[in-house]
């Protein structure tokens, strides 16, 4: 039988899916580099956050909880830093952002 915590974890894991799909969809559909960066830094990090939260509920020890948190924070920092670096590089290279015609 599923416990309440399992049910909650399962719901969180399922909830992460639409965000990962949105990240890929944004990557494919959005008109320029800058908009695609938005999709990557936000949708995917939220998806990972939900997975991490789900697994935290299942963790056997506090150490495991902290390590999961560390992974999420690392991915967050890396994603945000890289997004900024790529955007800055693109701007410096003279790439004008797409505008609604």
């Amino acid at each position: 039988m599923m416990s309440l915590i399992d049910l909650f974890s399962g719901a969180l894991i399922l909830a992460s899916l639409p965000f990962f799909v949105a990240g890929t969809l944004g990557l494919l559909r959005f008109p320029d580099l800058y908009c695609r960066l938005h999709a990557l830094t936000k949708a995917d990090n939220l998806g990972l956050g939900l997975v991490v939260l789900a697994l935290m509920l299942q963790a056997q020890s506090w150490l495991q909880v902290l390590r999961l948190l560390l992974i999420w924070l690392l991915v967050l920092i890396a994603g945000a830093t890289v997004a900024h670096l790529i955007a800055r590089k693109a701007l410096a290279a003279g790439h004008r952002p797409w505008r609604r015609p």
């Binding site: 949105a22 959005f30 008109p31 936000k42 949708a43 609604r100």
Partner: peptide, 24 residues
Amino acid sequence: QSLRGGIDVARRAYTPRLPLDPAL
């Protein structure tokens, strides 16, 4: 805010007419 940010960008990615109006 992260939750709002993720939901916002996901909604835009899913909407067929692509509701984007970017600016710097």
